[in-house]
């Protein structure tokens, strides 16, 4: 177990170094920060002086080294637009985005699993065909169209749901503000979570269905039938446990996609999360903020995948964390 974690830690460092190189090259290559920092009337010599003090004239390797030193200390620089430390800005918005992602994942597990399982048990039924049709629609319609349609139908036409913002939030421990504990907050959460689910769920339903169909054809399921077990036991103990293994892996990777999707969703619903912050930062060429976002998201991604691998190991008896093969 310790060996596994150590190995994962080393892998994580490699991944993070790569991400840091990408964020750094963004910082040094996109636009000229002096144009953001100074007004257009400032003359060239003052601009050069600022470039010198910001260290922009140093060799690339030296600049990267300075950048890494900063990152190691949690210092990503100061946002050009907000004039505040970039990391603090991101972390401030993190709870809003995490709530979006976690709620979507929970709904996905609760809805996609039974849908996929039932569609696999009765592959020719009307329900199964409907699920397949709707899910292929869900895959092919991009999330921003789904989200805009949601706003149009539920907020503008039916006037049922709020269309933007987080609504009323409650302070939990520390600086964490949650929208999960107030009725208003939950109402605001509904549409963004719903659109994210529609975007990401079809793949899962199809995946679960396909996996389950394959598992149901296997010899060990036939053997289970021939032992005279109940169908509930066969479907939910024998088959689902085997179906879950590949789904867990894909789930980890899809969490990354989900983070990417939050950028769209947050923009459309004016959700005050880090995706919204990021898209604003891109528009303003606010490079410290962009790189801070990339690194935070990279961390989340590495972390979720490590957790997913641990869950996989617990669910699959043939994986041993002590073994040398990992």
């Amino acid at each position: 177990m310790l060996r596994f974690l150590l190995r994962r830690f080393i892998q994580a460092i490699v991944v993070m170094v790569v991400i840091s190189i990408i964020s750094f090259s963004i910082q040094s290559q996109i636009g000229d920060p002096t144009q953001q920092l100074l007004s257009p009337t400032v003359n060239q010599s003052e601009r050069d002086a600022l470039r010198e003090t910001l260290g922009l004239n140093d060799p690339v390797m030296v600049q990267y080294w300075h950048f890494l030193q900063g990152v190691a200390k949690g210092d990503f620089g100061v946002s050009y637009f907000h004039k505040e430390p970039a990391l603090a800005l991101i972390l401030d918005k993190l709870p809003a985005t995490l709530e979006l992602i976690v709620c979507t994942l929970v709904i996905m597990i609760l809805v996609a699993t039974p849908c996929g399982v039932v569609a696999a048990i009765h592959p020719r039924s009307l329900f199964s065909r409907a699920v397949m049709l709707i899910s292929s629609l869900g895959i092919s319609v991009p999330i921003f169209i789904i989200a805009i349609l949601m706003v149009y139908v539920f907020s503008i036409q039916m006037q049922l749901m709020p269309s933007f913002g987080r609504g009323e939030t409650v302070h939990v421990f520390g600086s964490w503000e949650t929208g999960l504990l107030s009725k208003d907050g939950l109402a605001h959460l509904a549409l963004p979570v719903f659109s994210l689910s529609i975007a990401i769920m079809p793949i899962f339903i199809r995946l679960i269905r396909a996996e389950m169909l394959e598992v149901l054809e296997s010899d060990y399921i036939r053997f289970a039938w021939s032992k005279g077990l109940s169908s509930a036991r066969i479907y939910f103990i024998h088959a689902l446990k085997n179906t879950a293994l590949p789904i867990i892996t894909i789930g980890g990777i899809q969490t990354g996609t989900l983070i990417a999707y939050t950028i769209f969703t947050e923009s459309i619903f004016q959700w005050p999360g880090m995706g919204f912050l990021f898209i604003e930062a891109v528009g303003r060429a606010d490079t410290p903020l962009i790189s801070a976002y990339l690194i935070v998201v990279g961390c989340i991604f590495v972390l979720t995948n490590t957790v997913v691998d641990l869950i996989y190991g617990l669910a699959n008896p043939t994986v041993k964390f002590e073994s040398h093969t990992l």
């Binding site: 296997s218 010899d219 060990y220 399921i221 036939r222 053997f223 289970a224 021939s226 032992k227 103990i237 024998h238 446990k241 085997n242 293994l245 669910a315 699959n316 008896p317 043939t318």
Partner: peptide
């Protein structure tokens, strides 16, 4: 009526003891 299958490697469920 009980059944035995061809491939013992495939007949037992891999995730159950």
């Amino acid at each position: 009526i009980a059944m035995i299958f061809q491939d013992p490697m495939m007949t037992l469920n891999p995730v159950l003891t």
